[in-house]
Design a protein around this nucleic acid. Structure first.
Lengths: 124, 124
DNA sequence: AGGCTGGTTCGACGTGTGTCAACATAGGCT
DNA sequence: AGCCTATGTTGACACACGTCGAACCAGCCT
């Protein structure tokens, strides 16, 4: 347990962190630190435009999409870029330039972490 | 306050069964309407204080807690009340006054719906 | 009645956020 | 070189948001 990505917290400036994070919300009260971390991810998805962008990337083949394929969400191009940056900073997406186009890709572990966070306690 | 907001994430067809508003994020690109609905809930959980409050209620016995039990999150009491109201407006919590105290309770179906939203497609 | 405690609402303040137009950068093309 | 397309960055704007203190409502006391 000493390699892979095991950043304790997300670095806001790096924007490349993966956060395994916290126990389910229903298990015990979250600490301030845990809440800070988890809220950052929820916040990133708390905007309709970002949610659509993220969904567009996530549902694309291979979990990867070019900006040009997903930028039709009703806002200007700079705004799309701005939101993609936010999603990247939240650790939800990664980007890679290949020639002319930039491709965005989901960070599956983070998605899984959020899913776990909302996991129901199976009604005991 | 006669808040006429529609139920956020659930489609009340079929009674108690969990009917998510939207398919998993990874299934297909979300529509604008779907994103609007889902983002409202993510946004509600996108604040550390609200996340702690929600977690405190959700992890309490019976999924229910008195305000006095959970209001120790580092902000003033009016702010706690404000956030609880937000969570209520987002459909995540319901409140009920019993004598002196007000009890908040999680909306389990909504929690499940959000979990489904983040469900992974078994790593295609 | 009056007072006390638990919660909510109000009004205000500073900060954060989404948005755009304009500019800047990267890479491919002629 | 020069131009053109694809993205990202900057600066500015309006608006939303989190926070607090103070005032206000709801029940339980004495």
């Amino acid at each position: 347990m000493s390699n892979v990505q095991e950043l304790p917290l997300l670095d806001p400036t790096g924007g490349q962190g993966v956060v395994p994070c916290c126990p389910p919300l229903t298990e015990r009260p979250m600490s301030a630190t845990e809440a800070e971390t988890a809220a950052r991810m929820f916040k990133a998805l708390g905007d309709p435009v970002r949610l659509r962008l993220f969904s567009a990337v996530a549902s694309h083949e291979g979990g990867e999409a070019c900006v040009c394929d997903i930028s039709d969400v009703g806002v200007s191009q700079p705004t799309v870029s701005h939101h993609l940056k936010k999603l990247k900073e939240a650790g939800l997406l990664t980007s890679e330039r290949r020639g002319t186009w930039v491709y965005y890709r989901v960070e599956p572990s983070v998605l899984a972490a959020m899913g776990q966070l909302l996991a129901m306690p199976a009604a005991a």
